[in-house]
């Protein structure tokens, strides 16, 4: 029927899935917990956004609910990554030795326990 939308949606969907795969790769390759949060849980946000946008083009009737899922993820994602990073820091998970500095530990005036 609407061939153009189907193809555009398909392309968006595959592009989004590619970002998801890259997020997975980042989750696997990154050297410490903090960089894994960065690569894994956030690079996937755009991936999900594009994938769901693509699905919305193929099935226009689903667009509203897909938009709601995207909105929900965009609100919860920064929260959960921040909570995880803060938990890691409070639990004393060290940054990778490649790191250039830790202003938070300096400010708290303590070495990581």
């Amino acid at each position: 029927m609407s061939g153009v939308l189907d193809i555009l949606g398909g392309l968006l969907m595959v592009g989004g899935a590619a970002f998801l795969a890259l997020g997975g790769l980042g989750l696997w390759r990154m050297p410490d917990t903090y960089t894994r949060i960065q690569a894994g849980t956030k690079a996937t946000t755009l991936g999900t956004l594009l994938t769901l946008a693509g699905i919305g083009m193929i099935e226009p009737g689903w667009a509203l609910k897909l938009a709601l899922i995207v909105l929900f993820l965009m609100f919860t994602n920064p929260l959960s990554s921040q909570v995880m990073a803060r938990a890691a820091h409070r639990a004393g998970v060290p940054l990778t030795p490649q790191s250039r500095g830790d202003a938070l530990a300096d400010d708290e005036g303590r070495a990581a326990e």
């Binding site: 998801l20 997020g23 997975g24 989750l27 917990t33 894994r36 949060i37 894994g40 849980t41 996937t44 946000t45 991936g47 999900t48 993820l73 994602n77 959960s80 990554s81 995880m84």
Partner: peptide, 10 residues
């Protein structure tokens, strides 16, 4: 936990 969060989004 981080891996689980990533898996969730995917």
């Amino acid at each position: 936990v981080v891996a689980f969060d990533g898996l969730t989004i995917v």
